[in-house]
Amino acid sequence: GKKITDLRVIDLKSELKRRNLDITGVKTVLISRLKQAIEEEGGDPDNIEL
C-alpha cells in the first residue's frame, strides 16, 4: 500500500470520486478529506491500496 500523503492529486481525486466525495480544493484539503473517509471505513490512511 501507499501512504495517503504519497498520492498525486489525480489519485486523490479518483479515490474521492469513487466514494462520491467532493474533489475540489488544494492537495492538503483533498488529503484530509480522503483521510477522514478512510478512517471512517476502518482503513489505514498510511497503507492504502489503489
Rank of each mutant, 00 (worst) to 15 (best):
T24D: 15
E40H: 15
E15L: 11
I23K: 07
K3R: 09
D11K: 00
Q36R: 12
T28S: 15
L21M: 14
D22Y: 02
R33V: 01
D22M: 06
E40R: 14
I31F: 08
E49P: 10
L30E: 04
L7I: 04
T28N: 15
K35T: 13
E15C: 02
I48H: 09
S32T: 14
E39L: 13
L50Y: 01
D44F: 04
I10A: 15
L34Y: 02
E39T: 11
G1W: 01
D22F: 00
G43Q: 11
T5E: 14
L30H: 04
L34E: 05
V9D: 11
K3D: 10
L16M: 02
R8F: 08
V26A: 15
E41M: 03
G43P: 07
K13C: 09
I23N: 02
G42N: 11
K27P: 09
D46L: 11
E49I: 14
I23G: 10
L30C: 04
S32P: 04
L7M: 01
L34H: 03
D46Q: 12
I4Q: 03
L16R: 00
I23V: 13
L50W: 10
I23H: 15
K35N: 07
S32Q: 04
E49Q: 06
I10T: 11
G25V: 03
I48M: 07
V29A: 13
V26D: 15
V29G: 08
L30D: 08
Q36T: 15
T28L: 12
I10V: 14
V26S: 15
L21P: 01
E40F: 12
E39R: 15
L34C: 01
K13E: 09
K35M: 05
D11G: 01
Q36Y: 04
L12K: 00
L12H: 00
N20C: 05
T28W: 11
N47A: 08
K13N: 02
K13T: 11
D44P: 04
I23C: 12
E49K: 09
G42M: 08
I4E: 03
N47C: 11
I38R: 04
D46V: 07
E49W: 08
V9H: 06
R8K: 06
L16Q: 02
E40A: 13
N47H: 10
G43A: 10
R33N: 05
I10M: 14
L7S: 01
I23F: 15
K27S: 08
L34R: 01
K17A: 12
S14K: 08
G42K: 10
V9M: 15
T28E: 14
S14V: 14
E15W: 00
K3Y: 02
N47I: 08
K35S: 11
K3E: 09
D6C: 09
R8H: 07
K2L: 09
L30W: 03
V26H: 15
D22Q: 04
Q36C: 09
T24I: 02
K27H: 06
I4M: 11
D46H: 11
N47Q: 10
K35V: 09
K17H: 04
L21N: 03
I10F: 05
N20R: 11
S14H: 13
T24M: 12
E49V: 13
L50A: 15
G1V: 15
K3N: 04
R18W: 15
I4H: 04
I48C: 15
T28K: 15
N20Q: 13
S14M: 13
L16S: 01
V9S: 05
G25D: 02
I4L: 11
I48L: 08
T5Q: 13
E41R: 03
T5G: 13
T5M: 13
D11V: 01
P45D: 03
V29Y: 04
T5L: 09
T28F: 06
I4D: 05
V29E: 14
E39K: 10
K35D: 00
N20E: 10
K2M: 13
S14Q: 07
G42I: 01
R33F: 00
R8G: 09
E39A: 12
E15H: 04
G42E: 06
K35P: 01
D22L: 06
